[in-house]
Design a protein around this nucleic acid. Structure first.
Lengths: 192, 192
DNA sequence: AATGCTCAGTCAACACTGTTGACACGGTTC
DNA sequence: GAACCGTGTCAACAGTGTTGACTGAGCATT
């Protein structure tokens, strides 16, 4: 909402051409399903019914396409608003909720694509805007910004290790237990 | 130490041929310096003075080469032995210590290469053997294994976000502060 | 001594990747 | 009508990981 000029539109906004939206949609689905590396531009183009070169024409590069299409928008913001004493557990529970598979798929794809610097810095920036700064603003005590970064680091680690710690097949009870335990650990950084 | 048969030697052990050791050494250095994706097999081969095909001949694939050459062996084990009440901070402090750049480089390369499944499962296995099981064995209460996995998740997240939270240029004081804060959060899962 | 066997090492090629340049079409503006 | 611009297409590029056919040396067996 910062600037509504005529270029650099979000790929799924109304200003984008149908082709761009088709590419963005196919890219999003394939990135989430197969990860950054395994989803090739040619495959994305084919799924969108478009020439591979056109994907690059519109989005510049694979890195940029990924960064523009994969994200976690305003998912976290609502859960930073409630009582501060339980925000850790609420964040974790939200992230692990069985019905939020797509959020996890996006988040996981980004975390796993960290080998690409462009993706990394874009991700860090999103995290800062959408989580760290908002959370830090509500915290009190010393090093609020640092502690908020560490909270985000914990969430990243949880997603990275989600397979080892339960995975998509975990029961709701298991998820709740992880949310309780990990949420408490996160909370230690928010209200020590 | 499980089986000392004549094949499947560790690439830097005495049983390996000089060429294999040269490849392993070059691969390690390049992987740590440039990351998994940016270090090509042809580049590694050139640095080792060897034909690229020979690298594959000896190590099977790039994934396997990476998994065999990059690791964090017994780095964590010693710090799991001391008093249990401060193991969180000691682990974190050790991981962030300014003189342990190479450990961080290895760890970071692995975490960032998570887009490759082979690397991921190998990493998870190492984590289980070298950290989770040993830590879990010392813990008491419910869900010790799950909680130990969550500890490892926190360390992964810290490495993943290390740039955002200080990075290699952080002062020793900053590192100590992170170790104190993050260590306390980790500790919450070990001795709640 | 001659044979065969294994294994390190080499070379050219494969299929695939992301990306680019030259070109064609269609609509808008002068 | 002419010049332009953005969308779309095609073939090609350089680079990637990987493979198959080949050489050659050392060693064992007959």
């Amino acid at each position: 909402m910062e600037h509504a000029s005529d270029d650099e539109q979000a790929p799924e906004a109304e200003g984008a051409t149908p082709t761009q939206r088709a590419i963005a949609l196919a890219a999003r689905e394939l990135f989430e399903a197969k990860g950054y590396g395994a989803a090739s531009i040619r495959e994305i183009a084919k799924a969108a019914g478009v020439d591979p070169a056109l994907v690059i024409r519109h989005f510049g590069s694979k890195d940029e396409l990924f960064a523009r299409v994969i994200g976690f928008d305003e998912h976290f913001a609502p859960h930073l608003d409630g009582p501060l004493g339980t925000v850790g557990e609420r964040l974790t529970a939200y992230l692990l909720d069985a019905s939020h598979t797509q959020l996890r798929a996006s988040f996981s794809a980004i975390v796993r694509a960290a080998d690409h610097e462009r993706v990394r810095v874009e991700f860090q920036d999103s995290l800062r805007r959408l989580l760290v700064e908002k959370l830090s603003a509500r915290m009190s005590g010393d090093d609020t910004l640092l502690r908020a970064w560490l909270v985000s680091a914990q969430l990243v680690g949880l997603i990275h290790s989600w397979d080892a710690v339960g995975g998509e097949s975990a029961t709701p009870e298991a998820r709740a237990q992880v949310a309780r335990l990990y949420g408490a650990a996160i909370q230690k950084l928010i209200t020590p």
